[in-house]
Design a binder for these strands. Sequence first.
DNA 1: GGTTGTTTCCTAATATGCCTAGGAATCGGG
DNA 2: CCCGATTCCTAGGCATATTAGGAAACAACC
Lengths: 189, 189
Amino acid sequence: MPRAGLTPEALVAAAADLADEIGFDHLTLAVLAKRFGVRDASLYTHIRGLADLHERVALLALDEWADALGAAVAGRSGRAALSAFADAYRAFATEHPGRYAATRFPVSPERLAASAGAARIIELCYALLRGYELSESAATDAVRLLRSTFHGFSDLEATGGFTAGRSLDASWRRAVDALHHTLTDWSTI
Amino acid sequence: MPRAGLTPEALVAAAADLADEIGFDHLTLAVLAKRFGVRDASLYTHIRGLADLHERVALLALDEWADALGAAVAGRSGRAALSAFADAYRAFATEHPGRYAATRFPVSPERLAASAGAARIIELCYALLRGYELSESAATDAVRLLRSTFHGFSDLEATGGFTAGRSLDASWRRAVDALHHTLTDWSTI
DNA sequence: GGTTGTTTCCTAATATGCCTAGGAATCGGG
DNA sequence: CCCGATTCCTAGGCATATTAGGAAACAACC
């Protein structure tokens, strides 16, 4: 019987797709192995175990997400950049729910530092604020506010937390407008 | 050997405490049974299974949370009510991480409707906005914004998403101030 | 092309967790 | 005291994660 030709990269990519299909916490070694026509024990040649796979998927998702966010804000500034960033943020969460859930998985500090994704996203947030002229400590507060709003909305939307009949798109746009307004008036609040 | 005297209520209360200690997704029937000095199979007389336990803990947490939020806003209005609500929201999330995680567990619609907790929390959010004079659709957008910001901040804080050195309390206060400002200027944004 | 060493994948086995079936002990009402 | 109902138990099945060790495929070298 020929070999399946597994690699850590192929496993992680397939696991990320699988997570988007069935949910990050339903991601199991058995179903991942089945996707490659292989026994689950065979995966241990390429990954250390389930926890390792989870971390690798998280890092992959953070990288892909950073790419998407970076592309969205490229060539834009101020309100246009904020809006594009926000939409790319929410789009990633809704189109890749498994990957998005993975980004909240607690990755070990060493691996997180070794990978660029997470830091790039934070950096993009700070870059977003250049159009609003904030002090350093204000910028940290503002980045936390942006991330809280974006993450909270995306997470509540993904987990069915919003039940009112009104359009989620409309509420989202309103939230982004409100953030722009807040950032504009930051020093006078 | 005398009986352990289990009841669904005792099990759910202990499960909620356990979730706060070890995390909602590490909550297991084996460790819950051990806490009562009982075999895991014995729990099935009182609960239907793990999924049922998860739902019951979620409903308990929603009720307790609604109580805390209701007490915080009682007798206050406007900015003071918003601030008290926000602090009670975050305090619940940080002091009861397992219960807080449980509130995001997808409970079946029937049970959710049968219990008052979730609806009371949403209702409190709307009540919070009476001081700001918003139209009906605006109120829905505003409630979604409030919940997004509160949930996003609490969740990122709980999962270690904030790493900058600045005080989280200070950033939180700033976020609440920003929301007050947004609500005040809502119609002009 | 054959040989040899390495890597990949397999089978086998253990541990833990959820869950069901059926039996024994305990409790409470007569 | 006894009888019915309930509670808790043992035993077992199934799924998953994980380790150990063996066989087959691959690759490099003669």
